[in-house]
């Protein structure tokens, strides 16, 4: 949640929290359909709003990552770019969990 102005903070929290419902839906469909393409950790575009696009990713340990991208900007990101972004985020998270000083569940801040 870096680079957020404080007046927008609540809005971002709202966006991220509502996206968790979509994440939940997508995960439940994995068990029932058992299609191969849904077994990827990356969930794809969750939903687009007027200003933002929300992408989701859930690890095997049920840790959820959500990336919110401004959609009004001219830069349109490809799916693969988002995917590699999540992979990097996941790697960073794994390194963080393996840090003995980190207590799981606590807030992670980047420099």
């Amino acid at each position: 949640m870096n680079n957020i102005k404080s007046e927008n903070e609540l809005k971002f929290y709202y966006t991220v929290h509502t996206s968790l419902d979509v994440v939940e839906e997508k995960i439940q469909s994995v068990g029932s359909k058992s299609t191969n393409d849904m077994r990827e950790l990356y969930l794809g575009l969750l939903y687009p709003t007027e200003d933002y696009k929300v992408y989701g990713y859930v690890t095997n340990t049920k840790i959820k990552f959500v990336i919110v991208v401004e959609s009004s900007s001219n830069i349109s990101l490809r799916d693969n770019e988002i995917r590699s972004m999540f992979k990097k985020l996941h790697s960073a998270y794994v390194d963080m969990v393996c840090n003995p000083f980190y207590v799981p569940g606590e807030q992670i801040t980047s420099v």
């Binding site: 068990g31 950790l41 095997n60 794994v94 969990v97 799981p104």
Partner: peptide, 20 residues
């Protein structure tokens, strides 16, 4: 538990999602 959590987080990183 803490050790296991770190290990599991690392080895499930590149595995496909578990079905059930």
């Amino acid at each position: 538990f803490r050790v296991g959590q770190s290990i599991v987080e690392r080895i499930t990183k590149d595995l496909p999602r578990f079905k059930d």
